[in-house]
């Protein structure tokens, strides 16, 4: 192995899969070998069987659908409000001076700590879940987008000015396209965090969703179902992440090609 030397495409996939295989192998040895009590950790086969039961008998598909809907709802809301505000802050320094201190402060308010308050305000309905995700994602998006836009190469801005660009031309034709790929990456990252917030919100006060199933299973000591829920979240996250990556690569060919 040499530092920074690229790895071939097939080998890359094989190596990535190999770790998953090792992981499941280690898990199997621990559980089937009797090293860990069944009460605390279900083995892989039980986990799969419990997962099947969830879908076949308890209508788990509906829970999964609801959770995905909540994540997307909160995330899309945070992105549609956060991205434009972040762009305005990055482009116009007085706007940044006005919002930045508060946003930096709000960014450290833990979204999960808002859950009891949000239950008081919005009940345990959909609005409360969406708001938890919104609070968790919005301020992060705003700040990261503002930094990205503010870091646009100055020489490109100057070149655009000497080509006769107006202030709006600079924002629309230099700042935006230059920041777009990084903004897309930011959104991909934040979507991952949104998944954490939704489960936390569902663990605390919900009558449906993957997180709710996990709390129910805890009461029944069904570790198989809990693990199945956790792994399912991981898989959905991985799939959405891959989709995001694909889309970014297709949209911003100039930055990777």
């Amino acid at each position: 192995m040499k530092p920074l030397e690229p790895v071939g495409a097939t080998r890359k996939v094989a190596l990535g899969l190999a770790f998953f295989v090792l992981f499941v192998l280690g898990w199997s040895v621990a559980t089937f070998g009797g090293f860990v009590s069944r009460t605390f950790l279900a083995d892989p086969l039980t986990m799969l069987r419990e997962g099947w039961t969830l879908f076949a008998q308890f209508g788990f598909a509906k829970d999964v659908g609801i959770t995905i809907w909540r994540v997307l709802g909160g995330f899309v809301l945070a992105a549609t409000l956060g991205v434009p505000l972040g762009i305005a802050m990055g482009a116009y320094k007085p706007v940044e001076a006005f919002f930045e201190p508060f946003v930096s402060f709000a960014r450290y308010l833990p979204a999960s700590a808002f859950i009891p308050l949000l239950i008081l305000w919005a009940g345990i309905g959909e609005m409360q879940k969406v708001l938890v995700i919104f609070i968790g994602s919005f301020f992060q998006i705003v700040l990261m987008v503002a930094v990205t836009v503010g870091a646009t190469r100055r020489d490109l801005v100057e070149a655009a000015y000497t080509l006769g660009a107006s202030a709006t031309g600079i924002v629309r034709r230099v700042l935006l396209p230059s920041a777009a790929p990084v903004i897309a990456e930011t959104l991909r990252l934040v979507l991952g965090w949104a998944w954490t917030y939704v489960i936390v919100a569902e663990l605390i006060g919900a009558s449906s969703g993957i997180g709710h199933m996990i709390t129910d299973s805890q009461a029944l000591l069904n570790t198989g179902q809990i693990i199945f829920g956790i792994i399912l979240i991981g898989i959905i996250g991985l799939v959405s992440d891959l989709g995001f990556k694909r889309a970014n690569r297709a949209l911003f060919r100039w930055s990777v090609a």
Partner: peptide, 20 residues
């Protein structure tokens, strides 16, 4: 009083817009 299209400029650093 400011930059304008009447004075075109070529810089030492590469300033082509990479997305175009």
């Amino acid at each position: 009083t400011g930059p304008g299209a009447d004075r075109g400029m070529v810089f030492q650093s590469y300033t082509l817009f990479p997305w175009l």
